[in-house]
Nucleic acid binder design. Structure first.
Lengths: 183, 183
DNA sequence: CAATATAGCTGGACGTTGTACAGTTTGCCA
DNA sequence: TGGCAAACTGTACAACGTCCAGCTATATTG
């Protein structure tokens, strides 16, 4: 019953592999996210995954970017500072649901996937409407991203409780936004 | 010549193990920092390390904290904001010299060693002198640490050059400090 | 409809990692 | 001088990522 069917198609797809990886990550953490574990969950031999994913790094890259798809986009015509505030807050919340992921973003020096790119463009658009452009905008973008990812990384543990951490995040974020968009 | 002496004391010390780990990290990066590599460098069997270090995690913890000893302490009687600025700038520089280390700080949810603790107290002292106390001070401390470690993590790669990144860091840091210590 | 190519899967294996176990050797202290 | 604890060794194990060679069910072609 549960035994694998030698030489038979299991109907494995790239999406199924990704989904299994995500489930594993949510249920048992990053350390448990091994190729073998993903394969076991899909009732498949470990190397079968390599028909759909180049290697583990590539798999993680996709898990990473897929996560960012959950960030809610702000109203592009609303108040720019409020929009930026909303994006960063949402990003932090999304990352906080998978704390193990965050060190990976940093080890990879940030995300480069399509969803990450889209978010960056949205934020640049908001800044543009607030009169922050060119190099200044890119610098500010970097500051906001670093701050948010950093807080997601350090946000779960530590001596402060969750809501206190959320308040700290919010205060610092406002300080930054005030600096970026004065008045 | 290079052969090991079976059953003979090699004069290994905890400090030597730590030093070897640090060298390896500096010369070949985190991926090359394996127990076996450390042992080879000390001309010793891999498991000999376990007489001096509990396990690899403990070894890394000590490498991590040792690194923070290099952060220059500020004048405790100078201008508080300037002092905080100096500590964070120094911290970033120290971490930037071992970029591989930074994701580890984040994976461990911050540093807990004695040097990390000392730095925290110094910073709290500066804030106290600036009139920021209690929960406000702890929140501000967290914000500054997260920002600095985050920037060290994302500071090396990316589209901007090193000096541009340094300038971004400085701008954001000033925004935060202005928020923490107005006027 | 038959022959062939191909993509998806399998078993098995390799090299590397962290670390446990048991034994041997050494230096120190009673 | 006898013995003991600490330091070090060889050996081994489980788990990891990933490669290779085969088998097979499906898709493609004549």
């Amino acid at each position: 019953m549960g035994t694998r069917n030698p030489g038979q198609r299991a109907g494995l797809t790239r999406g199924a592999v990704l989904a299994a990886a995500n489930e594993l990550l949510a249920e048992r953490g990053l350390a448990a996210l091994t190729m073998r574990a993903v394969a076991t969950r899909l009732d498949v031999a470990p190397n079968a995954l390599y028909s759909h994913v180049a290697n583990k790094t590539a798999l993680l890259d996709e898990v990473l970017d897929e996560r960012l798809a959950l960030v809610t986009e702000p109203d592009p015509d609303g108040d720019p500072a409020a929009g930026l505030h909303a994006v960063m807050t949402s990003t932090r919340a999304v990352l906080l649901d998978r704390p193990d992921l965050v060190p990976l973003y940093l080890a990879r020096q940030g995300a480069r996937g399509p969803h990450a790119q889209r978010l960056g463009e949205v934020m640049l658009g908001l800044m543009d409407r607030a009169g922050v452009t060119g190099g200044d905008a890119r610098e500010a973008l970097r500051v906001l991203i670093v701050y948010t990812i950093g807080f997601a990384a350090l946000g779960t543990g530590g001596p402060l409780a969750a809501d206190e951490t959320a308040r700290s995040f919010d205060r610092g974020l406002r300080w930054l936004l005030t600096g970026i968009i004065p008045g």
